[in-house]
């Protein structure tokens, strides 16, 4: 079954992405992690997201549109990206999640994917 490993980041974590003095948490750590997922044959997809400040929220209600700058919620931890993996069980997915650089910072969330809709 497939799981999403969802990365949440604080403002500091977003800054750390480009900090060469923090190779355990910066982009190079994410590259190492993605490579490990691919080499193990469990990687199914995923993406890193640009900073929350680049986000735009769109809503339509009763024919009215609302467009806002900024991310959906203003919580301390923001969505930073996600990995989709194939795992035999939640245990296995959690073992991979613990190795994600973000697990050592703000934390990651693991959620099973819905099965794909029937064709």
């Amino acid at each position: 079954m497939q799981f999403a490993i969802i990365v949440y980041e604080t403002e500091q974590d977003f800054k750390d992405r480009l900090d060469p003095s923090k190779p355990h948490i910066n982009m190079s750590a994410y590259v190492a992690y993605s490579q490990a997922l691919s080499a193990a044959g469990v990687a199914r997809g995923g993406a890193g997201l640009q900073l929350p400040v680049t986000a735009t929220v769109v809503k339509t209600k009763d024919g009215k549109r609302m467009v806002q700058d900024g991310p959906f919620s203003d919580s301390k931890e923001q969505l930073g990206g996600f990995f989709i993996i194939e795992a035999a069980s939640l245990d296995e997915a959690l073992a991979w999640a613990a190795k994600c650089p973000a697990a050592g910072a703000a934390g990651v969330e693991v959620r099973p994917l819905l099965p794909p809709p029937p064709m």
Binding site: P23, H24, S28, A29, Q35, A36, K99, G104
Partner: peptide
Amino acid sequence: LMRAIGLTADVSVKKFLSSRL
């Protein structure tokens, strides 16, 4: 080493391995 870093959960070990890069 990159592969090892990607397979490490312990942050202190991640740091050590990164310092060897």
